[in-house]
């Protein structure tokens, strides 16, 4: 039972709106895009720096260190791309994530109202 009070709080709500607008998926994409952009320009800067250093007859060791750095950055970039492709809200212990996923299933029609309500109740009780 819930007692009513004066103020209206009948809006779509934070949790529902987050699920609907897939904030999490959007964030993952934005992060990925931001990261690649930054990596690209940084990698370019590194390349230019490496070229400049080679031209200046820096020691072979310095060049090697830069190449290692670039390889590491490329690996990071690949990882970021992979992370962005992964499902945005994998099932986990996080109640919010699970609720959001449930809500998405409901919205997509995979769960009908009754199934959604039952699953939500189960999740919250657990």
């Amino acid at each position: 039972m819930m007692r009513r009070r004066a103020m209206r709080r009948r809006g779509p709500g934070l949790v529902g709106t987050m699920a609907r607008t897939a904030v999490i998926a959007g964030t993952a994409t934005a992060v990925h895009r931001g990261m690649s952009g930054a990596m690209d320009s940084r990698a370019q800067a590194q390349q230019q720096e490496a070229a400049a250093q080679e031209a200046a007859f820096q020691s072979q060791q310095d060049v090697q260190a830069l190449q290692n750095q670039m390889a590491a950055m490329q690996a990071q970039q690949a990882q970021a791309a992979f992370a962005a492709q992964a499902p945005p809200a994998a099932p986990g212990n996080d109640l919010m994530a699970q609720l959001q996923q449930l809500s998405q299933l409901h919205e997509s029609g995979a769960l009908n109202d009754d199934e959604f309500a039952a699953a939500k109740a189960k999740l919250l009780a657990g």
């Binding site: 103020m7 709080r9 009948r10 809006g11 779509p12 709500g13 949790v15 919250l124």
Partner: peptide, 27 residues
């Protein structure tokens, strides 16, 4: 007090409370 936190939000989080307790929701 914008009311962006809806009744549903409040009830969702309140479900996790044990009896004889209370919660403040702050946006």
């Amino acid at each position: 007090v914008s009311g962006m936190i809806s009744d549903d939000d409040a009830l969702l989080f309140a479900n996790a409370l044990e009896p004889n307790s209370s919660a403040g929701l702050l946006l």
